[in-house]
């Protein structure tokens, strides 16, 4: 009696097994829902990327597979664009993150007008590059309101040059990047259980010790992520570097170099090579930050987030 079922099951198992076993591993027809998305990303993201990679190794003017890369790294003007980009992107991203922390820290909890303040902070996202650039040119320019105020207060003897150089682009990166960093950090902070800090306060820790030994360690993974995303934003400064900066000199960033090669000199191969260098630098920096992050506390922050 006990052996009979197993005898009847065994032959059936051979037939139905492949579908069944695949389903047990999570492969069945419902995966078809994923297909359009994956196909789309392969076709329009991964394939162009690989196409660009391949194109970058077949230079238009000959000279071997690595000719484009050799040209890029031997030309000081092109090579220097890496330094210019990093010198703009890293300080701007750091500034946005570091300034957001105390403001987000003060804005925890509920108070009147918080929603209004959050909405106001989102406003710069709507400005768009062009209005920001125009506004900076007019507000910070030689005849702009800021210089007028500074001169009238006798803080400076003659108008300060703040646009068409490094600082113009830096300000534009802060205006567009700061609200983003602030929103990210305040959402990370709201995920940290406030009772942890209160426990430290009852043990006699001052605000600095509470911040330094409780909030900051719990927040630092979030800070690393925010820095990465702010840096991604700051790294592709193309429009503001063209409009408020000095695109052929002090703010000749790498994205301008790539665009110039691909769509002004029509050397698509060189343009792709510069894009690949850009992607590589980007991924190295994100990799370093994420590696540093992986060595920090990763557990629960005890809050709702």
């Amino acid at each position: 009696m006990t052996t009979a079922p197993s005898v009847t099951v065994l032959p059936g198992r051979g037939k139905a097994s492949l579908r069944h076993r695949l389903a047990e591993r999570g492969i069945d027809r419902s995966l078809a829902l994923l297909a359009p998305g994956v196909l789309f990303m392969l076709l329009l993201f991964l394939y162009p990327f690989l196409y660009g990679l391949q194109l970058s190794f077949s230079p238009q003017h000959g000279g071997g597979a690595l000719a484009n890369y050799r040209t890029f790294f031997s030309d000081p003007y092109l090579r220097g664009s890496i330094g210019i980009t990093l010198w703009l992107g890293i300080p701007a991203a750091l500034f946005n993150v570091v300034v957001s922390v105390p403001i987000a820290y003060k804005m925890r909890g509920r108070f009147r007008g918080k929603r209004l303040l959050t909405t106001l902070l989102v406003v710069p996202i709507t400005l768009g590059t062009v209005l920001t650039a125009e506004g900076l040119l007019e507000f910070l320019g030689q005849a702009g309101w800021l210089n007028k105020i500074l001169v009238d207060l006798h803080l400076v003897s003659q108008p300060v040059r703040l646009v068409h150089n490094y600082w113009g682009v830096f300000f534009s990166l802060v205006i567009t990047g700061f609200p983003f960093a602030f929103l990210l950090i305040s959402s990370y902070l709201s995920g940290i259980d406030p009772s942890l800090e209160r426990a430290a306060a009852t043990l006699g820790a001052g605000w600095w010790h509470r911040f330094r030994h409780i909030t900051l360690p719990l927040l630092s993974p979030g800070l690393a992520m925010t820095f990465c995303l702010s840096f991604v934003l700051a790294f592709s400064v193309f429009p503001s570097a063209q409009l408020v900066g000095d695109p052929s000199g002090a703010t000749h960033v790498i994205s301008i170099a790539a665009y110039h090669a691909a769509f002004e000199q029509y050397d698509y191969s060189m343009g792709s090579a510069i894009s690949m260098i850009m992607a590589a630098i980007m991924l190295v920096i994100i990799g370093v930050v994420l590696f540093w992050r992986s060595r920090m506390y990763r557990g629960s922050t005890g809050g709702k987030g």
């Binding site: 994956v38 993201f45 992607a279 980007m282």
Partner: peptide
Amino acid sequence: LVMLLFLLPVLIPPITYGIPLATL
């Protein structure tokens, strides 16, 4: 792997993959 495929375009600035994409 699929998650990574969906994550990369968020982590890489548009202008980086935009130039090969536009070329194509």
